[in-house]
């Protein structure tokens, strides 16, 4: 008998602004599909939802003052311990909403390293379909996340289409397989130091201090570089 595995922790970030919102509904469909697939494979998933409309004023505060409010602090904790992420944005003016982008802009660059992410977006017209691949993907590449190959985009006409369900299924299994592989955990355990960090980054968890660096040698009266030999 195998020991039961810890459930996977899935964080859902939705930038939908109405209640109910189609952006949130899309994210929820992806999350429940991930959960269902996990159950079929003998695993469990716990889902934490970060609804950005509730964080709106804290997000703008963080942008202009670096002050992280209590809801932002909780969201950062949720993302920091997540095994996988579903990030879902409405498209405004041919771009993911400012609320969505701003939230990710204020996160530490190293918070999401190597974590698997499903990118999803909703829009009123199919003309926005490439926003996920051309704009959201680059943001998540910068954050060095592992975005799954399938993007999920839903325009008004997609909601009743079976094809949307198929794409959700594809993205969900891709995410689940990446979570199962332990890729993020392994990258972090074997290669964390090779990424750029600041003291207190990764949501306040990165507190290692390398006492043998060039700068530390300089701090303790030594010279930063060996003297020039001309």
């Amino acid at each position: 008998m195998s020991t039961p595995k810890e459930p996977y922790r899935l964080a859902v970030v939705s930038a939908g602004t109405s209640d109910p919102s189609s952006t949130r509904m899309l994210a929820d469909r992806i999350a429940s599909r991930v959960s269902a697939l996990a159950t079929e494979r003998g695993a469990a998933v716990t889902v934490d939802v970060i609804d950005l409309r509730e964080l709106a004023s804290e997000i703008t505060t963080a942008i202009v003052s670096q002050l992280m409010g209590p809801k932002m602090t909780r969201a950062i904790e949720v993302l920091g311990r997540a095994d996988g992420v579903v990030a879902s944005a409405p498209v405004y003016k041919a771009a993911p909403s400012g609320l969505f982008s701003s939230f990710f802009h204020v996160l530490d660059n190293d918070l999401l390293i190597a974590k698997p992410v499903v990118l999803a977006a909703t829009a009123g017209t199919a003309r926005h379909a490439l926003v996920v691949d051309e704009q959201m993907r680059s943001l998540f590449a910068y954050l060095r996340t592992m975005t799954v190959p399938t993007s999920v985009f839903a325009a008004t006409e997609d909601w009743n289409a079976a094809e949307l369900g198929e794409r959700i299924g594809r993205a969900a299994i891709e995410l689940l397989l990446l979570m199962e592989s332990g890729f993020a955990e392994q990258v972090r355990s074997e290669s964390w130091k090779s990424y750029q960090h600041e003291y207190g980054s990764a949501g306040g968890t990165e507190l290692d201090i390398d006492l043998s660096s060039d700068l530390m040698r300089l701090a303790t009266g030594g010279s930063a570089k060996p003297p020039r030999r001309d």
């Binding site: 003052s65 002050l67 003291y199 201090i209 660096s213 700068l215 701090a219 303790t220 009266g221």
Partner: peptide, 24 residues
Amino acid sequence: IRTPEIAEQAAFYGNGYFANHIFW
């Protein structure tokens, strides 16, 4: 505020360390 090298230098020389303690 957040630079360990500065705290290390203060400690190395036996000088004082000051935390601004306004924004965080």
